[in-house]
């Protein structure tokens, strides 16, 4: 192992000239965050309403679950290159954004669908019996119950988007991946590793942020806390188990039962 690169990586990261300018690291961070936020927002706006509705009416389960398996089989790198070489590639960041949205949709769709379907049927039936309409049922009962899984899907999608946005540098897109690819072109290993460290830190920061946001906006959080206080020792809400894995381990169990 060549430990000699570590001081050089540190030197690169602490050198102000690497951070400023039109292709400095700050610019790349901004591009990366912008691409991530836009694509994740678009993907949520597209996938969540469809998934919630499909889950509510109980249709399209095979599609909602298999789309994640299909998404895994398609190499992100290939899609990025294909879209950049298509006529779309002439319109700036659009090719990248579309690729990012395409890869963010499957985890969103699958998790939200499964979450709604797995909402406690007794509670849903009781709410229906109380005279709630379909819309009220969805917004007041099913979505709050499905919230942890919906957020797991959003987290998984965010991780996917950050990773794919990094790859977008290969066909010439912006983002932090550019620091890595530029380093490879000039055989500058410290720069390659420095870029990778920044990408990894951003990915972990996004994941961490999603965990915090998910916790803060959880509609059942307050009630869960109250419930736990009323019944000490009762495990109100299971602790968050790393979104990506949890969602992925669930699916095969679902698809394994014919």
């Amino acid at each position: 192992m060549n430990l000699g690169t570590i001081p050089d990586v540190w030197t690169w990261l602490t050198d102000g000239s690497n951070w400023s300018g039109a292709d400095g690291a700050w610019q790349r961070v901004t591009e990366h965050v912008f691409l991530t936020v836009t694509s994740l927002g678009l993907a949520c706006a597209l996938a969540l309403p469809i998934a919630l509705w499909l889950g509510h009416v109980g249709r399209g389960g095979a599609l909602a679950i298999n789309i994640s398996n299909a998404g895994r089989a398609v190499p992100t790198f290939a899609v990025l290159v294909l879209l950049t070489m298509s006529p779309l590639g002439k319109h700036g960041d659009w090719a990248t954004t579309i690729a990012l949205v395409l890869f963010a949709v499957p985890p969103l769709l699958t998790n939200a669908y499964v979450g709604i379907r797995e909402a406690d049927r007794d509670v849903v039936e009781a709410a229906r019996g109380m005279g709630m309409s379909g819309r009220q049922l969805l917004s007041r009962v099913e979505v709050p119950l499905a919230f942890p899984l919906i957020m797991a899907g959003v987290r998984s999608a965010a991780v996917q988007v950050v990773a794919t946005a990094t790859l977008a540098a290969l066909p010439g897109g912006g983002g932090l991946g550019r620091i890595i690819t530029a380093g490879f072109q000039t055989y500058d290993t410290p720069q390659v590793v420095a870029g990778a460290v920044l990408v990894a830190l951003l990915a972990l920061a996004v994941e961490g942020l999603m965990v915090v946001v998910g916790h803060l906006v959880d509609p059942l959080r307050k009630r869960a806390v109250r419930g736990a206080a009323a019944a000490p020792g009762a495990d109100a809400v299971p602790p968050a188990t790393g979104g990506t894995g949890a969602a992925e381990v669930r699916q095969p169990e679902k698809s394994a039962a014919p």
């Binding site: 192992m1 060549n2 690169t5 991780v159 950050v162 990773a163 794919t164 990094t166 790859l167 540098a169 290969l170 991946g177 890595i180 380093g183 290993t189 390659v192 590793v193 870029g195 990778a196 460290v197 990408v199 990894a200 990915a203 972990l204 994941e207 188990t241 790393g242 990506t244 894995g245």
Partner: peptide, 25 residues
Amino acid sequence: VLGLTTVLYTVPSLAMFALLLPVFG
């Protein structure tokens, strides 16, 4: 173990390969 593997999973592939470059060439 679960925490560590989840963190590893979060690292984007391009960064993962770049980080391993000094280790293996």
